[in-house]
Design a protein around this nucleic acid. Sequence first.
DNA 1: CTGAAAGCGCTTACAG
DNA 2: CTGAAAGCGCTTACAG
Lengths: 341, 341
Amino acid sequence: MTIKDVAQRSGYAIGTVSRALNGHPDVSEEARARIMTVVDELGFKPNSNARHLKQREGNEFGIIVKGTHNILFASIVEELQSHIKDLGRSVTIHYLDEDDDEVEQAIQIYREHKPLGIMFLGGNLNNFSRNFKNITCPCVLVTNRADTLGFPNLSSVSTDDVVGAARAMGVLLDAGHSRVGIIGGENYKIDPRLGYNTSHLRFIGIQQACLQHGVKFEPDYQLVVSRYSMEGGYEAAGVLLDRCPDMTAILAMSDVMAIGAMRAILDRGLRVPDDISIIGYDGIEQANFCIPRLSTIKQNAELLARRGVDILLNQTENGQTVHEIVPFQIVNGESVRIIEK
Amino acid sequence: MTIKDVAQRSGYAIGTVSRALNGHPDVSEEARARIMTVVDELGFKPNSNARHLKQREGNEFGIIVKGTHNILFASIVEELQSHIKDLGRSVTIHYLDEDDDEVEQAIQIYREHKPLGIMFLGGNLNNFSRNFKNITCPCVLVTNRADTLGFPNLSSVSTDDVVGAARAMGVLLDAGHSRVGIIGGENYKIDPRLGYNTSHLRFIGIQQACLQHGVKFEPDYQLVVSRYSMEGGYEAAGVLLDRCPDMTAILAMSDVMAIGAMRAILDRGLRVPDDISIIGYDGIEQANFCIPRLSTIKQNAELLARRGVDILLNQTENGQTVHEIVPFQIVNGESVRIIEK
DNA sequence: CTGAAAGCGCTTACAG
DNA sequence: CTGAAAGCGCTTACAG
C-alpha cells in the first residue's frame, strides 16, 4: 500500500496525492476530497522513511530525553507534549540512555528528520561543546544552562541550581543542623569556561550556604557521591551514617536518592526526622507520597516546559536565543526537624 | 556526507561500500579495511531512512512499550535490552502513550523498519484481535497472555494474574482480614473469547480467593476503580475509607496505587499496618523502599525479559509460538498485620 | 490546478 | 570480489 495505490484509485497523479496529503494550497477542493476519501478507504499511511529521505524540511519538533528513568524529565516531557500540541505543532520524542551522547544522537536525528527545532531534556556540556556546531536548527536545552557555550542557535531554560541547593542547605542550617551529610552526584570534569554540570552547581550552592551561615564545609568528610537512584541514595546514606556519627541531617541532591536514604536511616533503627532530618531536590510527585513527606526543592516542571516551548518557537521565528532561569519552590514536607538550640 | 563520499574517497563503488558497511562476506579484506578507515576518518553514519526504505529485511528487533510511566515495564525493558545485546542482536525501542493503539503503531513500524521480530510490553487484546493479522513477523507479547487470540506468529510470556491476585488476597485473608477493600484498574470490555485484560484477571483471582476462603465478595461495595498511579491510589483509598468503616485491609492492583493508598491512610490519621494493612502488586523497586516496606506480588522482570527474548529468537528460527507463564514471588514486607482471631 | 520526472541515500540482484 | 544500475516511496521544482 503506497501513494501509488491512492493515485491509481483516485485517478490523480501521485504528485497531486502528495500535495493533498500535505495540505498544500494548490489542490482543488474536488481533488482533495476525492483523494482523502480514497486514503480513508484504503487506510493509507505514508511511509515516513520515504518522506524524511526526500523532504528538505520536516514539520515536526524533536524532543531528546536523556535517561528513561528520570522522573522529573518524565513529567516535563508530558507538559512539553501537551503544550506543543496546544499550539497545533507535532513532536517526536527520542529516549536516550543516561550515558549516550545526546548531541551525537541529535546530529543523526537532525540529518534524518530535519526537525523544525530540537528540545534537549538534560545534557552534558562537554558533548555540546564538542559537536553541537553540526546542528543548525533552533534548539533549547531544558534543565541546564547553556549561556556559557555561546552557540547562536541554542537557548536554555533551567532552575538556578546554585541558588536552589543553597536554599536547600539553608533550610537545614536554619533549622539548627550544623552537621549535615551530603549525597551528591559526580562532579565530572568540564572545562571551567563551559560552566559546570548539575551536581557541581548544586555543590557550589551548598558551599555558599555554609559560608554564609558561618558553618564549616568539609566535602571529603561530609559528601558521598552516588548514582541518582534509590539504591544509590540508600548506599550513600549508609556510608554517611557510619562515617559521621554526629550527623543530624542529610541533603540529597535528588528526591530519589533522598527516598533511598530515608529507608537506610530506618534500617539503622533511626527515625526521620526525629534522629536524622532529610531534604531532597527536584520535587517529584513521589516526594509528596513519602512517609514522612519529603521536604524538597521543587523544580517547576510545568513552567520549564512551557517556557521551553515558547522560547523554541520564538527562536524559529526571529532567531533569538535566550537563557532563562525559572523559579523553584521550597516544599516543606515532614522530613526536617527544627533543633532547639 | 553520504555513502557517495565514502565511495569517492576510498576509491570503491558505493555498492562495495554498502556491502563492507553491512558486513557482507563477499568483500576483500583489503577493501573492507580501506573503506572502514575512510568511514572513521569521515565519521560517516548511514542514513537510516534510506536504509529502511530500500532494505527488504532489517536486522534489528523492535520493542514496543505501552506507557512511559510504567515502572515495571521500565525494568523489563532494561533486562530486555541487555539480553538482546548479550546475544549480539540489536534493538530499537519505541515508547507509546498509555492509550495509543500499540498494534496500529506496530504495523507502521513493521512496514517502515521490517524488524526481525517485535516484542510488545503490555497490550490490549482488542487491538490485537482487530489488526494484528497485518503483522507477519515473529512477535511476543510480554506481561499479557495471548493464547486465546490464536495468531500463528504471536507468542506470549506473562505472570498468571489470576493466581497472583488470588495469592495476594490469600495473604490478607490468611492474616485474618475479612473486610478488604480493593483498588483496581478498569475491567474494560473484551469479547470473552479473546480473554480478559489484566485488571479483570486480577479481579477474577480475588474473587476465587474469597470463594475458597468462604468470604463474601461484594465488588460494588468493596472495589474502587482508579488509574494506575499514586494519585489514583490515593483517591481510591479515600473513597474506600469513607465507604467501608470496618475495613482492615486494602489490596491494590499495583504498587504505585498501593503507595498512594498508604499516604491516604496516614492522612486520615490511621496507620499502616496497625489500623489498615495493605498489599500491592508488581514488586517494583520502590516497594522495597517504602516506609513501611510494601508487601506485594513481585513479577519476575528478569525472567519475563529473558524468556521473552528466548521465545522470540526461537520463533524466528523455527516458527513455533509458545505461551509461557513465569512464576511470581510473594514479598512479605511490613505492610500486612496479622489479626488475632 | 495537475502531471511527468528527477532525485533523496541507500541496498541488492545481476553481470563480469 | 567488484561495479553499474534499478528501485524503495515519497516530495518538489518545472511545465503546462
